[in-house]
Nucleic acid binder design. Sequence first.
DNA 1: TAGGCGTGGCA
DNA 2: TTGCCAAGCCT
Length: 347
Amino acid sequence: MYLEENFKDNIVHWFNNNQRSMPWRETTNPYYIWLSEVMLQQTQVKTVIDYYDRFTHRFPTIADLSEANEDEVLKYWEGLGYYSRARNFHHAVKEVQRDYNGIVPSDPENFKSLKGVGPYTQAAVMSIAFDHPLPTVDGNVFRVWSRLNNDSSDIKLQSTRKTFEQQLLPYVQEEAGTFNQSMMELGALICTPKNPLCMFCPVQENCEAFDKGTVLDLPVKTKNLKKKTIEQSVFLIRNNKGQYLLEKRQERLLNGMWEFPMFEASNAISEISHKLKHDIEPLPEHIFKLKHQFTHLTWNIKVYSVPETIDINEKVLPDNMVWFDLSNRDDYSFPVSMDKIYRFIEG
DNA sequence: TAGGCGTGGCA
DNA sequence: TTGCCAAGCCT
């Protein structure tokens, strides 16, 4: 038996002496704790801190955020990625303002029903803010728990999550929030994917994988397929005031973010001409190109300059298009790919 | 249920 | 350069 009585004491004691300083650990406000958990999804602590500080400064209360418009919320998320998090969080906070009188529900079922709240966020906020006995199972805990138990279950499977949650229940009956954060902090600082610092691990004596020499083989996770590459064409189209045409994306990917008109290269010219009801003839060669990597796909972008200027008065733009003055960068949320193009033009 | 969904850091 | 990973959730 590896997980003896001293396991929880060991890891919590280590956490109390070694945890990193984070702004959301200095508050008991459930709204702030919730926000931090959403920002931290698939995102490193170091990246989140500045975004968290700016966001809480601009939207200090549930009421403040619920009154904001979505474009401004996205602006405060710009560069953080996974923008549906921002839209879902905004939606959920408005729901709290309307249905719960602006108070984050402390009932786990009610909280879980809010948009963007999954099993992890439910457990994290409920345990940290309200001491509910729910275990957080995130990437860190999958790794730590797999190694402690020398368990080679595929962590991609839903059934593995459920098993881990059941196995962790005894440890969250008291001080759940502290235990949960201890497990995650251990995974982030000691029990890392590569080069784990087992010699400094406070629960080395509780770790079956360390004993058996299988630490680097765990956790087991089936691999994803190879990612696709899409050839994209971007058009820089100006009017007679020197402003550039922008389009607000209405697709799943980067929904609500602004871009210079972009189309798949194979039919780009006809697409943009049709959209503007105007024949577009860009310079035959692209003025520059860039490669943008997502987790699941790659964009090879060629940027074309359209020499002709379009008379602003002769054209009624579709709702999701605007003329963009380079000096008004702060009014628009760009994904990183478009910010690269903006900086090329502006610089 | 498996794949879509951003970005930055690291070996 | 390439692939993997980071306090996951949605459809």
